[in-house]
Simulated assay, not measured.
Amino acid sequence: MRHAMGVHNTYAGIGSIVSEDAEINECGQAQADAVAEKLKEAGVFHALHLAIISPFTRALQTALRVIPQAPFPRKRVSGHDCTQVHPLCAEQTFMHSHVGRGNRGSTVEELSRSSDFSVFDWKEVEAYCQKRRVNAGKWWHHGPHSEETESSFQRRAVRLKKWLGSLQDHWAVPLNVLLVCHGGIMQAAFDYQPHPPNCGFRVYDLQRTGVATHVARGQALR
């Protein structure tokens, strides 16, 4: 699922000339509430075990409005946390992406201080920073450089799919995951074309190798 509409999306992106770690706006709040209600009515939440969320504020705010409709986030299944915040599913952070896109994040310390985000566990983000040798909790650098390139972003998209596929190895049940992320990563990892709308979503089956099958089309994506 792509995040709900943010202030940086207003007027086709003109609404924010420089918007670092943009928040969702009133339209985005209504979008997230509406999608949450539809998923609840369809019985989707009852099948979910885990939510993976991008550390950008707009994705976290979307998750807070969508996930409370479900019974799973405040329970633990097979000894695992049922919500994880992870930088692998964050939006691209190319050199120009802080202008009008909000693709510069907030540090782990800044995010964890927010009372709104106290429900989330930040250990995966901290571990990511340590593993990638990212300083000061600035996870959006992804390491070792301060900006991503097109090729490094594509490699991260592949790592995301393989990581999602590998999660099954650590759970004792067939795993159903809600991924709350961004349009760019959805295009790069799952070939979502054209650019997904705010709160747009698709369903995929993932293998441990990272091969994803679009369920509606039966089309395998590598």
Rank of each mutant, 00 (worst) to 15 (best):
T57L: 09
A59L: 06
A59M: 05
L60F: 07
L60V: 04
Q61W: 07
T62M: 04
T62H: 06
A63M: 03
A63F: 02
L64D: 08
L64A: 09
V66W: 02
Q69D: 03
Q69H: 14
A70S: 13
A70W: 03
R74K: 12
K75H: 08
K75G: 00
V77M: 07
V77D: 02
H80Q: 13
H80D: 00
H80W: 05
D81Q: 10
C82P: 00
C82Q: 12
C82V: 00
T83S: 09
Q84N: 03
Q84D: 00
V85F: 03
V85R: 03
H86N: 11
H86Y: 07
L88R: 06
C89W: 01
E91V: 01
E91D: 11
E91A: 08
Q92Y: 08
Q92T: 00
Q92G: 06
T93V: 01
F94C: 01
S97C: 10
H98M: 08
H98Q: 07
V99D: 02
G100F: 04
G100P: 01
G100I: 02
N103T: 05
G105N: 05
S106K: 14
S106V: 02
T107Y: 06
V108H: 08
E109S: 14
E109G: 07
E109P: 00
R113T: 10
D116W: 12
D116M: 13
D116T: 05
F117W: 06
S118R: 15
D121L: 11
E124D: 15
V125C: 11
V125D: 05
A127P: 00
A127G: 11
Y128P: 01
C129G: 09
C129V: 06
Q130C: 12
Q130H: 15
Q130G: 13
Q130R: 15
K131T: 11
V134Q: 06
V134F: 07
G137E: 03
G143Y: 08
E148H: 08
T149C: 05
E150C: 10
E150G: 06
E150I: 11
S151H: 12
R155F: 10
A157C: 11
A157R: 07
V158W: 11
R159H: 13
R159C: 12
L160G: 10
L160A: 12
K161V: 10
